[in-house]
Amino acid sequence: MADSAHSTTADTHETGGTRRDFLVIAGNALLGIGAACTAWPLVSSMNPARDVIAAGAPIDVDLSSLKPGQQILVLWRSRPIFIVNRTPAELKKLQEPNDTGLLRDPQSEVEQQPPYAQNWHRSIKPEYLVLVGICTHLGCIPEFTPEPGGTLGPGWPGGYFCPCHGSKYDLSGRVFTGVPAPYNLPVPPHRFVNETTVRIGENPPNVAWEFGSIVQI
């Protein structure tokens, strides 16, 4: 049309710009938005599906046959969960300054547990410990090694030993200094439905705590 004096594309781009560009820019913008919106369902489809989330619903574990000093292992959301019934002697040892002095985070200050487990025994009831059994170093499963001494040396107070890179934790999952693991073992949300049944994956009533806020699993 009237623009015929400009005879190259470049010219039109630069000088004829203001006139035609609103529609062109809007068109480009809509194409961009459309492409981005199209990407969303694809990306979203890789998140856990409904059935996967449903399979991660809380589970109930009966503790009536778990004797003091024993551990059972259950699976919740495809993760190993340790449940230990600790003996009074073991509980006493958790509070001894000789041992707690060797811990990296004895007061459980890093958010590796729900608020109701931020105490010296890292649990609701002192004897029953519930942990996600995944080393905070690189994701191996630490071994339950409750007997003091043994192959881990005379100073070993009893706890968890990770076979992959030698990380050590005490019997409430607190990590020792001088090992590669940086944090205490995580405590999942849990509550007691009755005296001997623990429900893993659900907070006690009136507590709102997100499992996802744990610093390192």
């Binding site: 369902p41 694809l42 979203s44 489809s45 890789m46 599906a49 409904r50 996967v52």
Partner: peptide, 30 residues
């Protein structure tokens, strides 16, 4: 993205496609 959720096995293939339609986020759309 469909292949990420599909099971090429005669016992599972039909169910896995239906699972995409029913359970996977936006699976029906894809």
């Amino acid at each position: 993205f469909l292949a990420m959720n599909y099971d090429p096995n005669v016992g599972d293939a039909f169910q896995s496609v239906e699972r995409i339609m029913r359970e996977v986020n936006y699976g029906w759309l894809i």
